[in-house]
Design a protein around this nucleic acid. Structure first.
Lengths: 140, 140
DNA sequence: GTAATTGCAAACGGTTTGCGATCTC
DNA sequence: GAGATCGCAAACCGTTTGCAATTAC
């Protein structure tokens, strides 16, 4: 099961790395199709799985929204502003977090965690018309 | 839009409160159908939404799994052992967490967060045959 | 050469929704 | 009686999968 550097796989990774936000699978598909029109959704999802298994990308699971993908798998936590549809990386390391959790009698070992913080982002960019709907503009 | 205390709504809330674990919508539906055979899934989901809006229950979103529901909406974080299929409440308050997040220039206000920790649970109960598959046994 | 990967299209699974009938207040 | 809620069944939507053809190594 040795993974191969397919044209499709390379393109998908490029697209994620080039995006200045964290795109969804559908956005990745649309962007990649510009240079490879026959690229199928199935291939995108399969490659996202492979790339994640190899820890070359990270999947961000946001309740009630499609998953997003991050070119930097070291990120651990995210801030989501649903108003603006924007998402920001947060600095937080696993060691600090595990200290924060009161010792729970049932926990033997912690492997991973998923932390998403919801709230309102500052308007600094928006009020200059730079950020609102940026993702869609980029895709258009 | 004043919410009414329907038989169905009451039953669904009872089921969640009576469960000694955090059931999924499907489990709630199955359990509730024992005393109300015509209860439909749609009604379960609609009521779960209403109860959540009224902050009488909490929905637990676990990546890659169906949502679970908690009779105590004050819970903020959960520990999931995928091996055993078990889930535990963790003590963690929003204030402590927000201190932990390094000040991020884009954050204006934090409304809510979703924290799920994955790992392995201790075997204490399992080895006495008390916990493994408990949910299914209960449903059977 | 061969095993991994692809495109296609159909299926999946959890959740939502439109409808006319039925309840709660 | 008005409007919230119900049961039913079909639709939804992000994601997965079976298959025959193609490609990377």
């Amino acid at each position: 099961m040795k993974s191969r550097l397919t044209q499709q796989r390379k393109l998908i990774l490029d697209v994620i790395q080039a995006a200045c936000y964290h795109p969804t699978a559908e956005q990745i598909h649309q962007l990649a199709q510009k240079s490879m029109p026959n690229l199928s959704v199935g291939t995108v999802y399969r490659n996202l799985d492979v790339l994640r298994d190899e820890k070359r990308i990270k999947r961000i699971d946001i309740p009630g929204e499609p998953a997003r993908f991050d070119a930097d798998p070291s990120h651990k936590a995210y801030f989501v502003c649903r108003d603006k549809g924007s998402i920001y990386d947060l600095d937080l390391d696993a060691a600090t977090l595990s200290k924060l959790l009161k010792d729970h009698p049932a926990i033997q070992r912690i492997d991973d965690f998923s932390l998403v913080v919801f709230g309102t982002a500052k308007d600094t960019m928006t009020e200059r018309g730079m950020r609102k709907g940026r993702v869609n503009q980029f895709l258009n």
